[in-house]
């Protein structure tokens, strides 16, 4: 899976979770950039991404991921 594909699929997940079709995420999108990305949504988002890619994030990734790029790194590694 190449990185572009990951981001395309991530876009769909984000749009679905945040209920906003206009969202496009990039390498350095952070929680501050997306309205409503708080700790509650973070967990929902993580689960949705896990379901989409059929992977499991460990706690380090859940807590320490700083931006969507970090998330994509983990997906790349695990999938």
């Amino acid at each position: 899976m190449d990185r572009n594909e990951i981001f395309e699929r991530l876009n769909d997940v984000f749009a679905d979770v945040f209920d906003d079709d206009t969202i496009t995420v990039s390498e350095d999108t952070t929680a501050a950039d997306i309205d409503g990305w708080d700790s509650l949504m973070h967990i929902t988002l993580i689960s949705a991404v896990e379901d989409e890619f059929d992977i499991k994030f460990d706690m380090k990734s859940v807590v320490a991921m700083k931006n969507v790029g970090d998330m994509a790194d983990v997906i790349e590694q695990e999938a």
Binding site: S39, I43, I46, M59, V62, V63
Partner: peptide, 11 residues
């Protein structure tokens, strides 16, 4: 509390 209680409980 978020990192050491909320996330672990949720996950």
């Amino acid at each position: 509390f978020r990192d050491y209680l909320f996330y672990p409980v949720m996950r």
